[in-house]
């Protein structure tokens, strides 16, 4: 691959699959998935449903999922609402401020693909995956709190399958976009790109 050799951690992605390493990976992933702290990035109407999901009826904290104000303290960015062109550079910057490993959940039709504003919205970003890579798409306008919880549970499943100590493979099922040089730190879905 082109470019300098990327920096790898001391034990990260170094080991062949084996019983101990796989169990260690599962333990690490289990602890990470049960404590996802999300950066509350409420942009529009979906933010109200995200707040409702965090409130007492559809509690997210029982899954360990907690809102944080700052991207530096968050694992997950829930993009809840319409991304506009003016906001796009800020979304990218906030994504870059998050520390690895980080995930993105695109909540609502507007963040998925522009939503109801896709046709005549000259200032609407047609999907937040034009600027950042997205892990989970939750459809709805706005998605019900149960739908958002389902998306978060799917994200937990995804995190459980992550390869922390084990080496990444080239042909891991349909995640063929993953590469060995570590440029894709978390296997990304083969989407628009």
């Amino acid at each position: 691959m082109s470019g300098p050799e990327p920096v790898r951690g001391l034990i990260q992605n170094r080991f062949e699959d084996g019983l101990i390493v796989t169990s260690a990976d599962q333990l690490i992933n289990w602890s990470r998935k049960n404590s996802i702290w999300f950066m509350q990035f409420g942009l529009a109407c979906c933010a109200i449903e995200m707040m409702a999901t965090g409130a007492s009826r559809y509690d997210t904290e029982r899954f360990g999922i907690m809102p944080r104000g700052s991207p530096r303290q968050a694992d997950l960015m829930i993009v809840a609402g319409t991304a506009t062109l003016k906001m796009a550079t800020r979304i990218k910057r906030l994504y870059e401020q998050m520390a690895e490993p980080k995930y993105v959940l695109s909540m609502g039709s507007c963040a998925n693909n522009g939503g109801p504003y896709w046709r005549y919205g000259y200032h609407v970003l047609k999907g937040v995956d034009e600027v950042i890579p997205v892990d989970i798409y939750v459809p709805g306008c706005p998605p019900r709190p149960e739908a958002l919880l389902y998306g978060l549970l799917k994200l937990q499943e995804k995190i459980q399958e992550d390869r922390v100590l084990r080496k990444r493979g080239l042909t891991v099922g349909s995640l063929a976009g993953a590469t060995l040089d570590g440029s894709a730190d978390m296997p990304r879905p083969a989407g628009k790109r």
């Binding site: 942009l43 529009a44 319409t82 003016k86 906001m87 800020r90 109801p116 504003y117 005549y120 200032h123």
Partner: peptide, 21 residues
């Protein structure tokens, strides 16, 4: 302006019941 979603442009292009959403 970070959430300018072009409501007035949409109004000119959809019909009256379509403005409601």
């Amino acid at each position: 302006g970070y959430l300018h979603r072009c409501f007035e442009k949409h109004c000119e292009n959809v019909d009256y019941p379509g403005v409601m959403p």
